[in-house]
Nucleic acid binder design. Sequence first.
RNA 1: GCCGGGAUGGCGGAACUGGUAUACGCAGCAGACUCAAAAUCUGCCGGCCGCAAGGCCAUGCGGGUUCGAUUCCCGCUCCCGGCACCA
Length: 874
Amino acid sequence: MKPFQPAEIEAAAQAAWTAADAYRATEKPGAKKFYCVSMLPYPSGKLHMGHVRNYTINDVMYRHLRMNGWNVLMPMGWDAFGLPAENAAMKNGIAPAKWTYDNIATMKKQMQAMGLAIDWSREVAACDPGYYKWNQWLFLKMLERGIAYRKTQVVNWDPVDRTVLANEQVIDGRGWRTGAVVEKREIPGYYLRITDYAEELLAYLDRMPGWPERVKTMQANWIGKSQGVRFAFTHDIRDAAGKLIGDGRMYVFTTRADTIMGVTFCAVAPEHPLAAHAAASNPKLAAFVDECRRGSVMEADLATMEKKGMPTGLVVIHPLTGAKVEVWVGNYVLIGYGDGAVMGVPAHDERDLAFAQKYGLPVRQVIAIDGESFSATAWQPWYEDKQRGKCVNSGKYDGLPYAGAVDAIAADLAAKGQGEKQTTFRLRDWGISRQRYWGTPIPIVHCNDCGTVPVPEKDLPVVLPEDCIPDGTGNPLNKREDFLRVDCPRCGKPARRETDTMDTFVDSSWYYMRYTCPDAKTMVDGRNDYWMPMDQYIGGIEHAILHLLYARFWTKVMRDLGLVKIDEPFTRLLTQGMVLNHIYSRTGAGGGVEYFWPDDVLNVHGDDGRIVGAKLKSDGSRVDYGGLGTMSKSKNNGVDPQALIDKYGADTARLFVMFASHPEASLEWSDAGVDGAHRFLKRLWTFAQARKDTVRSAAGAFDWRDAAPAVKAARRELHLTLKQADYDYERVQYNTVVSAAMKMLNALEAVPADAAGAAALAREGLSMLIRVLYPVVPHTGWGLWQALGFATAHGDLLDAKWPAVDPAALVQDEIELVLQINGKLRGKLVVPAAADKAAIEAAAKAAPEVAKHTAGAAVKKVVVVPGRLVNVVV
RNA sequence: GCCGGGAUGGCGGAACUGGUAUACGCAGCAGACUCAAAAUCUGCCGGCCGCAAGGCCAUGCGGGUUCGAUUCCCGCUCCCGGCACCA
């Protein structure tokens, strides 16, 4: 008997697939096509568990659908531009290009070792000029149409390295390399008008039944459509030249126009013209404005920082009451949102109340709710309740509910020419300029005479030099004269190339279309119309908002340019959960943090059983427990899939990752269980080899009516389990598909080998089991299919027909119902399968358990759920 | 802080539309085989009480709806993801 040797089987299976060019997909008009894509990986060095999980899900889907007759395409590519390559370059002195290409080679080899059904003829890398040329081309089209435009953006500035920092490079408000306090700085950059598509991006969410509700909710909230009122406070504040600042108007936006009568102060951003005006004659205020410039631009930082303010000494006039309202500078007011100024209504906004209490500002109640009392000092959530309140202390608006008050107030503001209703979106335009080297060059030339000039289409691509090595002090392209020097496309005089590159989200916004026609002479061609929209997209939940929203936007722009005929790119979306592992660290005396590999520590538990810390196995010294987090190299908590593959083979790794949890749930890593997965494969292999001759001899037809009772029971179990597995495949719950395969083997093993029909059942059962499990463990499936001689009967397993449930195998004469009394399980009831409700009720009333537990009390009600249970209520 | 999600035995998890909670596997315990170990096989395996029959409790915590709640509703706790320059 041939022992289970994964390395040998996997090599043979992969060689066979390669020889047959088994995964090359072609456009077959008329055939039912299925286009499934995994979010393309960043080539960080080696595959990690998240990749293995992602691609295995995709591969299982591919093989299952292909066996069910679909024309399936599964491509792969590389998100090859990005910051990590520059970081690696700084650390190792290797050019980002070389580092990236080396990583791609390594990771491609690992994917091939996993046995993934990838059509490699369609491979795309974002750093290939043949790809990013089309980023540049579409950018120029967007410029022509006004979808792309230039304006200032606020960035994190490291004053020591004199460079722009990514949010990731800011730690506790300081630059990660220099430790210098980061400053906000305004610089020019290019934006894409995603806000022009906000309405459509929101509306189409309702037409996307194949997307998880949670993702659609997140996107809808992110787009954040809200109705409100934009209105002006007037003033007579003039600059040094005597000119009215802002034409004497300070605009604010509010979604709570019904509370305007409760305004007791206003706050403006530190960069607001009124703040600048006041600061010019007030050194203390100038110092405060300067202080506000420090810190990062991250929203999470801004939202959690201490709210601070300072009075400007300026007043503006309330548009409805005519009252004077103090203007403050607030560090929490952002110049980039709306008009950079907000109204303060402490009585009905929790954050305004905190601010008012801190600085002794008045609180004025203007909304009341029947039955609830109001306190100007203690916050109650109902103060913010739009639906229950009515206006009070609001003059002519008293008694109006939310909607009525908003309408009346908006009308009065409009009549004065001081305000109007407005729909706003939380969504902001997409800033794509990055002051970094390793990305798609933005195809713009700066000319002293002509200003910013687009590169003509015929000169594309603007090729990125591949031999730069960044040193952390800014974009190395600024030192590359051969790249910088160019003649102005408009006037022909010497000019200078733009050195900013594009956000890597541009690369990932349309790569899945280039897969369909990687050699097209245009951005996409007719092949794209065959494969798109994508039938199934699979990737991490962390991409639920940004990447997916940008890709949807990009698709709509391509549609409006006539490049594609679709409105949405992804029909079905599967957001796989994160692969998590414990994080252990220790902060050294110098402030540096050292991370420890989870296998090297032992947990220390607190009284409540929670992990409170850990000890190093090597010397028993204490390390801190940092909770669960995504596996990452920087946290030193990654599990190397290659080690699993080397030790057990790819199929064990695939089986374990699929079995460990539901694809959409996060997966808490644990080494235990990998052995179990391997043991199961070995058990299956051994069982099938032992039945080899039996299976081959039982090729003829068998009349199941002649089977022994144990064989009939096992056959019923097999077909029931197959039915369950079919359902689980359909709903992409692959963990229970694996369970189903295990149950099938358990059922087959339990049948006595000499029972009537045992040989026929072994043949039918193994043939079924191998096919059901094949998508998960294709190498083992391939090996067994051949060993049992099925190859000649069905052709190659990859294109073998999916097994069918035999309804006759499921039929039974009697069924077992659960007997409940007052909702508690008290016994079982066996009734004929055909029994009707009345018969079941009668049988239940006659059951001894009922007499015992009701103790003669009158039966009030009997609930009968056919096929499931009877509940007797007394 | 805001938005989204999660919590089920010692562990990973299952339970489809409100209907037997803990399928399947891991770990553990006992036994078989073996000189022995490994491997393999068989059995047991949520907690408490009980000789047993059986009973009670249990799906993060506190309430509610229902004949019946892991599932629906309200209020919490903790954890995870995202927050626009990590990808």
